[in-house]
Structure formats: C-alpha cells, structure tokens
Amino acid sequence: MKTYGTEPTVPDPVQVGIAELAVVEGSDTLKSYGLGSCLAVALYDPGTEVGGLAHVMLPSGDDVDGADRKPGKYADTAIRALLRRMVERGANYVDVEAKLTGGSDMFEFESFGESVGQRNVDAARSELEKLGVPIVAEDVGGSRGRTVEFTPATGAVTVRSSSEGGEVCEL
C-alpha cells in the first residue's frame, strides 16, 4: 500500500470553501479565496492559539430547516459552531476575539436592494455581540473581491484585494 506525506514539507493552507468552516491550532493556516458578498469570520483565542475561519454565505440559519447540516453557511450558526469547536479544542471562551472581512457589493442590481453583502456583516456583528465576542478588527464592504488568510498563532488575517491593483492589508 502506498503511503503519503512522508516528505517533510511546509503544510499548504487549508482551504475553507464557501459555506464551510474549519478550526486549527498554532501556525496552521486557513485560506478562503474570492470572497465577494460572502463574509469571512475569523475567531481566535490568543492564549491557546486555537482559531477558526468560516466562509459565510447568508445571514441567518435559525429559521432554516436543516441548517445544522451546514452550519458554515449562515453567519449565526457558523459563529456558534466555530466557538463550540474551538472550546472543544481547548480555547477559553472569554478570551476569544473576532475579525471580519468581506461583505462587498459587487453589482448594483435592482433585485439586490440596499446591499447583499452588508446583511451578512450586520448578522455577524449582532451574533458576536450576543455571545460577548469582541470584534478587534474588520475590513468589510466596498465593491472588490478579497482573498483571506488566517493563522491562529499570531491572529493575523491577511486580506488580499483580488481586483486590479491587488493591495494587501493586515488585520
């Protein structure tokens, strides 16, 4: 039988696709590509270096049947699931901090109303407030896509603008 992973290599970042979430520790890196109106929620506990990233698609799953099957899809269920999994891995609930990025409005369509991206931002802020998790940094809104990398060891969230020019900002 073949064995894999015997060569010592730098681990690739774990990709967190749309509607997914993942929890890691230390210097492991989580990455989400091409967020438009979606929102990336990064939670971490600086003490234990346990952290997680959710690539949220919609504001609220509380009234949706079967939302528990895909907790990463909704801002509220994703934040609760991240916290639970982090605590299970040793994070201290009271020390957890949040960083938000994404929630752009890429198109001005009539059917989109005021803002599609902003609703995700509002939902995440309100759920975090309810749970007493402070938002320590955010880069939200605008009309550009973002690619996000997050490492719990430092709590650093690197946001790369994916439109022309491609500026990078660190949260």
Binding site: I18, G34, G36, S37, M57, L58, M106, G145, T147
Partner: peptide, 24 residues
C-alpha cells in the same frame, strides 16, 4: 435584462453575490 455590470476580479467573487441573493 438589466444594463451590463462589468467586473474584473477573482471568479468566485463575481459569482458569490448572485448565490448569496438567490440563497435567501
């Protein structure tokens, strides 16, 4: 159909607003 909206960005970022809207 509406007037065209131009986008020059990572592919997923151009598609996700539509998915987010329909997902409601």
């Amino acid at each position: 159909h509406s007037p065209p909206e131009f986008v020059h960005d990572i592919g997923a970022a151009a598609v996700d607003p539509i998915v987010v809207k329909l997902g409601e």
